[in-house]
Computed example of a mutant assay.
Amino acid sequence: MASKLQRNIALGLLSAALLSACSTSPTGRKQLVLLPDNQLNEMGVASFAEMKSNTPASSSTQATQHVQCVADRIIAVLPDEYRKQNWEVVLFNDEQVNAFALPGYKIGVYTGLLDVATNQDQLAAVVGHEVGHVLARHGNERVSTQLATSQALALGSQLYGEDSATKTAIFQGLGIGAQIGILLPFSRTHESEADVIGLDLMAKAGFNPEESIKLWQNMSKKGSSSTPEFLSTHPSHQTRMNDLNAAMAGPKQVYTSLKAANKTAHCY
């Protein structure tokens, strides 16, 4: 009886903590956020400083100005709490096809990306996507989900009796299930949500949102992963293009209006 009461109390406390940490993303999706944003900002600043010490910045003034121009246009249309921050943008001299944005208002682009994002609009699709992760607090949500999952499994292991081969097998299986059933889908959800947020940001900033589709066509030509999508942290290229097409109407209308008013971006 005492063991059952202890179990119910512990589970009740865990459930209350998780419910109190519920938040809402910019798209209206419910999310779990356990950590204060300033803690994530500090982590982002520290990570960016370490990256700058390990990876040289590009020596190309033209390429650096191009990336800065695109980032500045995206930053200019962010909500006030983000737009008014002192964002730092660095073009890293590295062949990997990638970019990122970190809590703490940091944006990094690798020179290898410029071989795939072949114009300002395609680069804006990537930068908008990465900034979308920050706006949606995906870093915080990702860490919070991992913390909650690991704590729940640890609590369950403690509450359900003495160690045994059967119990160990069950909780090892739950760990695998959590990875595939919770953590990986959450990551794919983050990527898809950042795509939609980025599409909206790039259009508002005066970039052609339809170029986001061409970007992923370029990505597909560059190479693809053999990992099945349900075991991957990212949606497939085709899934991303389908989702972007489905969300295109609103951003395209915004861009068309800006184009008619001669207010589109010129970061060539």
Rank of each mutant, 00 (worst) to 15 (best):
A2I: 14
D94M: 03
D121G: 10
N140W: 09
W87P: 03
D115S: 12
M51D: 12
A124Y: 02
S150D: 15
L35I: 09
G206A: 08
E162M: 12
I197V: 07
A21S: 10
P235M: 01
A57F: 07
L199W: 06
A76M: 09
S15R: 13
E141H: 11
Q85W: 08
L153N: 05
I107R: 01
R188I: 03
P185K: 02
N245T: 15
L78Q: 06
D115K: 14
S187A: 10
N93T: 05
N218V: 04
T111V: 02
A136T: 07
S187F: 08
G12R: 01
M248N: 08
R83M: 03
L135T: 08
L201E: 05
T149R: 04
N245G: 12
T27H: 08
P209L: 05
L155C: 05
V45I: 11
S187C: 07
N8V: 13
L201R: 03
G28P: 06
V109C: 02
P185L: 00
S232R: 06
K204P: 06
S236K: 03
G198F: 01
S164D: 04
F48Y: 12
L78K: 05
G250R: 13
P235T: 08
D195Q: 07
G108I: 00
I74Q: 07
V97P: 02
V196H: 11
N86C: 07
T149E: 10
F230K: 14
A203P: 06
T149V: 15
I107S: 06
G132T: 07
K259S: 15
V89H: 02
F171G: 04
N119P: 13
Y105I: 00
G112L: 04
Q158R: 11
I75Y: 01
T145Y: 03
R7I: 15
C69M: 10
A16C: 08
T118V: 13
P56C: 04
L201G: 04
D200E: 15
H66R: 13
N242Q: 15
L102N: 01
K204L: 10
G139K: 00
P79I: 05
L114V: 00
S232N: 11
G108V: 01
N245A: 15
E42F: 11
S225D: 11
N41F: 07
D243Q: 15
F171P: 02
A246G: 12
S23T: 12
H66N: 14
A260H: 09
Q238E: 13
L231H: 02
L14S: 06
Q39W: 15
T264Q: 05
T166K: 14
A99F: 01
K263E: 14
N86H: 13
V254E: 13
A152E: 03
Y160P: 09
A261V: 13
E130P: 01
T264N: 05
K252W: 10
T256C: 11
S212D: 05
H129N: 03
S59T: 14
L199D: 08
T264A: 06
S47E: 07
S236C: 08
A63F: 11
L14D: 05
R240Y: 10
